[in-house]
């Protein structure tokens, strides 16, 4: 177990260097001079040249890459071109907002998704089943920005129940709309996967006997079936959690949520190279950590699963 963990962690290194390198060359190859986003609409060439020199932008690409890798080794991404703040600090300041939103979305998708899925399986082929399965597939098909707008329109503007946007200093009221918006797709997906995994068990082995033996037995059956659904649920929720953490850009912009996604979007639009590099790097670390955690969780829940499986053949 421990050696496996070490091996996986060691694997982080080349992947992260890869991610950082791709980002480095990407932002440098693309057109647009980062210095120009630091000055107003009226500027002179002298100022531009001076700034470029100070930021080492006048040096050959290889040398710049050297600076970059040297900084990377110390986890130092430098200061933002645009705000002048140390990048790594800003990233860490913004991450908790994203984390909180992602965590809530994850809890919602597990709690609601599993409950709906279990009920739908229980009420298999009843109107409830059809209704929820219909709703969930529509839910999966709805663009997240569109849902967010509809929710604001309904719950804030029309009903006046919830605030429209903002972090609100951490109030729960402000959290509800964005986290439901973000959770929409995975809630629907968890519901469907729960239902179908349970039905597999029920249909395959027990359906006749369980029905015959009455409620208490079928309750056990459902517990068994639910365990069967656990692994696919973890896969879904884990993957989604990882991607929520690496920036729910659309949800965060619509709800004016001060998270990492919007932070990175702003940096991209302002051509703030150090910030883009730092934020993308951080997101990659988070994403891989969550993946690793999911793998470990797998092994813990079902020791029969060999840890190497997912790494060897993909999810």
């Amino acid at each position: 177990m421990l050696s496996y963990l070490l091996k996986r962690l060691l694997l982080f290194v080349p992947i992260l260097i890869g991610v950082a390198t791709v980002t480095f060359f990407l932002v440098y190859v693309l057109p647009g001079d980062p210095v120009l986003s630091m000055v107003g609409e009226r500027y002179d060439q002298e100022t531009i040249d001076r700034l470029r020199k100070e930021m080492h932008l006048d040096e050959p690409l290889v040398v710049q890459y050297g600076y970059f890798i040297a900084g990377l080794a110390r986890l130092d991404f430098g200061v933002s071109y645009v705000t002048g703040e140390p990048v790594w600090e800003s990233v860490q300041k913004r991450f908790p907002f994203t984390f909180r939103l992602a965590l809530c979305a994850m809890i919602i998708s597990v709690v609601i998704g599993v409950s709906v899925g279990v009920l739908a399986a229980w009420k298999w082929r009843t109107p409830f089943d059809y209704l929820t399965m219909g709703t969930t597939i529509v839910g999966i098909s709805m663009p997240v920005f569109w849902l967010g707008v509809l929710l604001i329109y309904l719950f804030s503007m029309k009903l006046g129940l919830l605030p429209a946007s903002g972090y609100g200093g951490g109030s729960i009221k402000h959290l509800i709309l964005p986290s439901f918006t973000l959770a929409q797709a995975s809630t629907a997906y968890v519901a469907r996967i729960t239902r179908s995994s349970m039905l597999d068990v029920v249909r395959e082995h027990y359906i006749q006997t369980a029905r015959a033996k009455g409620v208490s037995e079928s309750r056990m059956l459902f517990a068994h079936a639910l365990r069967n659904a656990l692994l696919p649920i973890i896969t879904v929720v884990g993957t989604d959690f990882g991607s929520y953490l690496s920036g729910a850009v659309l949800t965060e912009s619509i709800f004016a949520w001060p998270g990492l996604g919007r932070f990175t979007l702003d940096a991209i639009l302002k051509r703030d190279i150090p910030t883009i590099q730092g934020a993308v790097f951080f997101m990659a670390v988070v994403f891989m950590t969550v993946n690793l955690a999911v793998d470990l969780l797998y092994a813990w829940i079902d020791p029969r699963i060999k840890l190497q499986r997912r790494t060897a053949s993909g999810p």
């Binding site: 991610v19 920036g247 850009v249 990175t264 979007l265 993308v280």
Partner: peptide, 19 residues
């Protein structure tokens, strides 16, 4: 792995905003 670890939407935004 590198591609999947990359925040895809942001990558798209970065490339397209610039080219």
């Amino acid at each position: 792995d590198i591609t999947l670890a990359y925040p895809a939407l942001l990558l798209l935004i970065a490339v397209i905003a610039a080219v």
